[in-house]
Amino acid sequence: MKNKTNLSNATKTTIKQNFLGYLYLLPTLVITLIFVVYPLIMSFRMGFYERYNYYTDEGSGFGLATFKFVLTDPNFQKALMNTFLIVVIAVPVSMIIALAIALLLNSGIKASKFFQAIYFLPYVTSVIAIGIVWSWLFHSDFGYINQFLGMFGVDPIQWLNDPKMAIWALIIFNIWSGLAFKIVIFLSGLQNIDPQYYKAAQIDGTPKWKVFTRITLPLLSPTVFFLTITSVIASFKVYNEVFALFGGKPGPANSCMTVVYYIYDMFYGSSQVHKAAAASIILFIIILIITGIQMLLSKKLVHYK
């Protein structure tokens, strides 16, 4: 009997303490509920209506009709294809380049701190400003890229005018703009590797390539994993780059439409908010599945010390 009361007293204290804890969280929770959870639920709800009045929040035709519309919309299909292309090409390429630069910076070259700062600059510069600079670099008559290629006898490429080339201009821009963040993360990952491993390898006379594949890469795998997840998600959300490079258009003849640009245009341009909502739910599901696959793979491939 005595025991029981003790226990319930303890439970009471715990409840009381927990409650107090939640009370401290309350302001954050209320704000999150109002500004994150509530809009999230509302936009999910919107996507399931066939017709929706944004001003009165009244919809009709609850079901999957809007999803069907979005999935069969040639613009959305184009957007999906472009987005996958960016993910499949830009993510690995920029990872490799970033890793190479990070290795170089980590190898103790002169003025490495200076170069670190230089490489990080793009990350803290506005994408819109960078986009304007790139749109000049890509200019078919006056751009440096074509002038450089011209030195090797390459005819001017219509980077931003030709609907077939525009997506490659976007991918190149995207690779470059993703570098800064990746280099910094890779560098910190590299600096976390215990130098003892390298010393041991040196004593054994291990060739450099083997040191990289057997020591650096496995010990860097958590960093690689983290970067893959974040950059895949970021590449699925490419929008700023498109907007900046083509001056507020999804490329020549809509050739650079991406999924998030599609959502933006459906919302702000067409004002078909329910279609924007449906498209964003589809994007959410795609990202969820791909991240899930990455998580599963990571169990096999990532070594935590």
Binding site: P163, P252, S255, G269
Partner: peptide
């Protein structure tokens, strides 16, 4: 708005593509 965008795309497809 959508019709206007479709018209613009039509012109650009003919000229650029």
């Amino acid at each position: 708005y959508n019709v206007r965008m479709a018209a613009e795309k039509a012109v650009e497809s003919v000229v650029l593509n």
